[in-house]
């Protein structure tokens, strides 16, 4: 656990120093919200809000995941970590932790801006729960696929090709439960269960296979 925190802290510090991706992803999210704000009428917004938000988060997620291993590329520091007494799983969980930190922060900022622009409060506990479960799923699957894509020639193509079809059930569950939350209905246990199962499945599978994904 200590090593996971050491590595996650390093990733967070590198992102704050480099400001390479989180800032770009945030700009993308804000720009998308502004475009939707101009193109949609206020009567449509409650019906379309879940789709808008999760479409933005899906693309933002891919942009962010694509960058997961970028800090390790410049001087092959991933190889350096492979010669250290660190379990490969610790590297994986540190990336999941730092990825979650940034993705969740982007989502919270997006929710705030969305609430202001569309005059629709999405800052409610049910949506936070959905966001939490979906983001864990996004980063757990995305980190594994980013590691697999790392050793391929068309990294930018491989990641979305692997990620989007796999994450479809998660995205559908997130959209459905967000719709329920905005309609004031209780969240479906079955959809929440799908998200939880997705999270557990990908964390468990990645725990087993991540070592092979980062092998040279």
């Amino acid at each position: 656990m200590k090593q996971i925190l050491i590595l996650a802290k390093k990733d967070i510090l590198l992102e704050f120093r480099g400001k390479e991706i989180t800032f770009s992803v945030l700009i993308f999210a804000i720009l998308a919200l502004i475009i939707f704000n101009f193109s949609l009428g206020s009567e449509d917004i409650k019906r379309l809000a879940p789709g808008i938000l999760w479409a933005i988060f899906s693309f933002a997620g891919i942009l962010h995941m694509d960058h997961t291993f970028a800090p390790e590329k410049a001087d092959d520091t991933l190889e350096g970590l492979r010669t250290c007494p660190i379990a490969p799983e610790a590297i994986y969980f540190s990336k999941v932790l730092s990825g979650f930190f940034f993705m969740f922060a982007i989502e919270i900022i997006t929710f705030i801006i969305f609430s202001v622009l569309f005059n629709l409060n999405v800052l409610i506990p049910q949506i936070f729960l959905v966001s939490l479960l979906a983001t864990i799923g996004f980063v757990s699957a995305g980190t594994l696929f980013a590691a697999i894509a790392l050793n391929t020639r068309a990294q930018e193509l491989v990641l979305p090709l692997l990620f989007l079809p796999t994450a479809t059930p998660l995205i559908i569950a997130a959209v459905t439960t967000t719709t329920e939350a905005l309609s004031g209905k209780p969240l479906s246990v079955s959809w929440l269960g799908i998200m939880l199962a997705f999270d557990i499945l990908f964390l468990a599978v990645s725990y087993i296979v991540f070592e092979y994904a980062i092998e040279e």
Partner: peptide, 21 residues
């Protein structure tokens, strides 16, 4: 492997340093 790694170190052309740190 983890136990063995406590006893060794590798220096290559790649410095394994993070440029932003």
């Amino acid at each position: 492997p983890l136990k063995a790694r406590r006893h060794l170190a590798l220096v290559t052309h790649q410095t394994y340093l993070y440029g932003q740190l």
